[in-house]
C-alpha cells in the first residue's frame, strides 16, 4: 500500500518546526506504524536526508517509550493500542497521515518527534513509592489483600508512563498519570500508610511541572493504551481532600 505522511520536523528544542510531506510506496498492512517510519527513514537515508527521529524501545506496548500524535489522536486511531502496536491495517491505501510529537509545555520537544517526558519521573520521585528499604519486608502473605482490591490496583498499576494522557488532554493535564500511581498505591494496604503525604506531594509536583488543569474531558482515558479509568482521578481528589482535612 501507498501511505502519504505529513511529519513534524524540528531541528532542536529552540528551533521552529514544520510539517513535511513524504510518501512511502512500500507499506504493508502487516507493518506496525513505527516500522512504516523505519522504512521512511531507510528511504531518507538512501537519498542523503536526515532520518526522522522518534523514540521507541520495546515495540510491544509496554515500555512507554513511543508516543506520537497519529492523525490527530495520541497513539493513533486504534483504541487501547500504543503506536508501536498500531498496525497499518488500520489505514487505507493512499491515506495521508499527519504525525506530530506529543505537545505540552512540560514535554519540550528535543528533535522531530522526540520529547522530554522527565517531568513524569519527577512526579514519581515526589512520592510515587512506598518508603520501604530492602530487607525490611514482612512475609508476602502477612497482609491478606482481597482479589478485587489487588485487581483494581493492578488496573492502575498498568500505566506505562507514555504521556498520551497529557498529549490528548485539551488542557495538557497530567492528572490521569498522577492519579494512576496514587490509586495503585493507595488501594493497597502497603501504600495506604503514606497515602496523604503521597497525594499532596505528587499533586503539587504536577503543578510545578506546568501541566494544565483537568476539565474532566476523559480524553485521556480514551487514548490510554492501557485503558486506565478516570475513576482514578476521582479517587485522587478524594484522597487529596481527605489529606487536607486530616492535617
Amino acid at each position: 500500500m501507498v501511505i502519504n505522511l505529513r511529519v513534524w520536523r524540528q531541528e532542536g528544542p529552540d528551533s521552529s518546526g514544520r510539517l513535511v510531506d513524504y510518501t512511502v510506496n512500500q507499506a504493508s498492512e502487516h507493518m506496525s506504524f513505527l516500522e512504516l517510519l523505519d522504512v521512511l527513514n531507510e528511504q531518507l537515508l538512501q537519498s542523503g536526508d536526515d532520518p526522522v527521529e522518534f523514540d521507541s524501545d520495546c515495540r510491544e506496548g509496554i515500555c512507554g517509550s513511543c508516543g506520537l500524535m497519529v492523525a490527530g489522536i495520541a497513539h493513533g486511531p486504534q483504541k487501547r493500542t500504543a503506536v508501536c502496536q498500531l498496525h497499518m491495517r488500520s489505514f487505507k491505501d493512499g491515506d495521508t497521515i499527519t504525525v506530530e510529537p506529543f505537545r505540552a509545555r512540560a514535554f519540550p520537544i528535543i528533535r522531530d518527534l522526540v520529547v522530554d517526558r522527565s517531568a513524569f519521573d519527577r512526579i514519581i520521585a515526589a512520592h510515587g513509592y512506598v518508603s520501604v528499604t530492602t530487607g525490611s519486608a514482612p512475609d508476602a502473605n502477612a497482609i491478606p489483600i482481597s482479589k478485587d482490591l489487588a485487581d483494581d490496583a493492578m488496573d492502575y498499576a498498568a500505566c506505562i508512563g507514555c504521556g498520551a494522557c497529557v498529549a490528548a488532554c485539551p488542557n495538557g493535564s497530567a492528572s490521569l498519570f498522577t492519579a494512576a500511581k496514587i490509586s495503585h498505591l493507595g488501594l493497597l494496604p502497603q501504600g495506604r500508610v503514606e497515602a496523604s503525604q503521597r497525594v499532596m506531594a505528587m499533586v503539587d509536583q504536577m503543578d510545578v511541572e506546568g501541566f494544565g488543569d483537568c476539565s474532566n474531558y476523559a480524553e485521556c482515558e480514551a487514548v490510554c493504551p492501557k485503558g486506565i479509568s478516570i475513576e482514578g482521578i476521582a479517587r485522587m481528589r478524594r484522597s487529596y481532600m481527605k489529606g487536607v482535612l486530616s492535617e
Binding site: R103, P170, G210
Partner: peptide, 21 residues
C-alpha cells in the same frame, strides 16, 4: 490551558468514547 500547551496541534481530534469531549 494555554500556558500548558503554547504550541497547538496542526491536527487534533477526539478519540471518541469513553471521552466526554
Amino acid at each position: 490551558r494555554r500556558k500548558a500547551r503554547p504550541d497547538g496541534y496542526k491536527k487534533y481530534k477526539s478519540a471518541g468514547s469513553p471521552s466526554y469531549q
